[in-house]
Design a protein around this nucleic acid. Structure first.
Lengths: 345, 345
DNA sequence: TTTACTTATGAAAACGCTTACATTAATTGA
DNA sequence: TCAATTAATGTAAGCGTTTTCATAAGTAAA
């Protein structure tokens, strides 16, 4: 059996209370006693049981991190940034990957709640459903602790959102392409999440506002089962054969855009002369492919930083805005040629 | 205050023991009572306190996952696969990202140990030091619970390793390039971890065994501060100007190899006609870049699967091999032209 | 009907820590 | 010198579960 605080107290010839005090910063303990106890702890390699502590303490300074798939490039980066930021502020993080099954989510949320976390951060907008019923579990959770949303928004007490305005960003990206003389654009997306639908809407409205006829609309939903580039390329090829040619591709994620690049190259199209391509997220992939991918940067660092900032305020019981919105920006690289800079009225 | 098992027991008119039994599968509880209690639990949204459970239970079916940087492509994938596999076997996982600071590691290990995990998986070989002293904390941990190493190896009781033979894989990759008539190879690496050094050795021995003169050795260590492709490209450019030209690049990680591709393109070199490039890890990047990157696949799926398999055996108290070694293989794509297939005697 | 055996339930101890409160010893001020 | 204050330590009551053991009620066997 593992060594306990009682064992240490006996070995040091003091009470468990004293050992506990030493463990928690050594206030109201004489230096001599403190040293004696510390030495014993060191010598026997005693590690306090976190669960027993968890019973006594009110806060364990732990934040739950829920995401769908932590291996996704964007999510992985978000998780890492959040984890670092939390750590820097004395908080631990508990990560759970729920996958994309809506049913599994609720169980996971319960699991995290049972760990007495001080708050839960939902990473990505997959957690926000489109119907009120789907979000019931979020409301339940919000009754207990503050819920933080990264890149999603939900209007409810004790739910705080930090997000990039994906609608506006995508609207601007699409407008840039249209204004550069490309009205026939293939739109690729792989997620019908909150932000996924916002982006789609942004794209569609950009078309409408620029009087692009419906016949030129070409919207493809790629089911996010495999993010293999080859699969994406095949998918585009399969879905577009027989359809009228398009001269632009806008993707809701860089991976899809890279699939687009590969497709164009396979078809013998020159980029950006014959076809322009825009990705989204401004991930490392933008620099890996050739030509380098133009992409929308949705300022993940700023988002995660702000989110933790808000969280700390909420936990401190201070007044905090419920929703903070950043705006993304198009980073132009070599898959487009919009210069001179996109028309802004 | 949150609702407790006692509240539920009162509401249902039974004892806490009965509620607990219902919570834990409902053995030895009459169907009627079970239903009654379940309904109350449902109605009040009761969630048992994990810390209180942690006190009673012997095992919490939780495995600690320690990694340096979860946003690294390879690590993120490993973590995801491990998490899924654990989940499928009824285990939870507790993720901690330690960063690269050796000192921080020990604290993290303690933190995870304090959570009464059943085992700890160290993801990647950054945790294995080169001196015995550096590994002291691993030995200490191994006294308490089994320690599992993914892609690293350490000889100690209660420490189990599952890894890819990076030495042999790199030896083969380098040999393939040499045999195809390229003796002047630039070697790029960004980690002096256990496996990082194994790969380096594999490369060096391939040179030696093929009688390549020392003068052609060109080994560059890229300090893993930023994995920005542009930085890598600049780094290569800076470090190689003035040195004799080389006709091959072998990198210990795909990101570095992509940096190599970009460098070659910047220099106006044709790939693979003027320069051949090999990466390592066979990540998604291999398909993103143009030309598609030849890379060593170190069978991450097989590794994670085997590791969890071993872990479950260990936890079940069954006899288990301490070390399982897989072999990687070179996946040839468009940055090399070794065909006909690499010479094997 | 009685006995033996299940089955369902409750009472209470245990888990390892924190902490409010009590106690003792040491220090200060008059 | 003695009361008042402060500092250091101990005692013991929680914290919310699980689980052992005891008990009561129901069922089958004789």
């Amino acid at each position: 059996m593992a060594i306990t605080i009682y064992d240490i107290s006996q070995l040091a010839g003091v009470s468990t209370a004293t050992v506990s005090r030493v463990l928690n910063g050594g206030e109201n303990v004489s230096p001599a006693t403190c040293k004696k106890v510390t030495d014993i702890i060191e010598k026997y390699g005693y590690i306090p049981n976190a669960y027993a502590r968890g019973m006594g303490l009110h806060s364990l300074k732990t934040i739950g991190l829920l995401c769908a798939d932590s291996s996704d490039l964007y999510t992985a980066r978000a998780v890492y940034l959040l984890e670092q930021e939390l750590q820097a502020n004395g908080y631990e993080s508990l990560l759970c990957c729920t996958g994309f099954n809506q049913d599994v989510r609720k169980n996971y949320l319960h699991l995290v709640l049972s760990k007495k976390v001080d708050s839960i951060i939902l990473v990505g907008s997959h957690f926000i459903g489109t119907t009120e019923l789907e979000n019931e579990y979020i409301r339940e959770a919000a009754d207990l602790i503050p819920i933080m949303l990264l890149n999603a928004s939900y209007n409810h007490p004790n739910v705080y959102s930090t997000l990039c305005d994906d609608y506006a960003s995508m609207y601007e990206a699409a407008s840039s392409m249209i204004c550069s003389g490309i009205p026939d654009i293939l739109y690729l997306y792989n997620s019908k999440s909150y932000s996924g639908l916002k982006k789609l809407k942004g794209f569609q409205n950009a078309l409408t506002d620029n009087n692009i006829p419906d016949s030129l609309q070409n919207i493809l939903y790629y089911d996010k089962s495999s993010c293999d580039i080859e699969n994406i390329t095949d998918f585009i090829e399969e879905m577009t054969t027989g359809r009228p040619r398009f001269h632009g591709i806008i993707a809701a994620d860089d991976v899809l855009a890279v699939g687009g690049i590969k497709y164009a190259q396979k078809e013998g199209l020159r980029i950006p002369e014959d076809i322009s391509i825009i990705g989204y997220n401004n991930s490392i992939l933008t620099a890996c492919c050739t030509p380098a991918l133009t992409s929308v940067d949705n300022c993940l660092e700023a988002l995660t930083h702000q989110l933790i900032h808000t969280l700390l305020h909420v936990l401190a019981g201070e007044q905090t805005p419920q929703k903070v919105v950043f705006s993304g920006r198009l980073i132009e690289r070599d898959t487009t040629r919009f210069s001179p800079s996109p028309k802004r009225i």
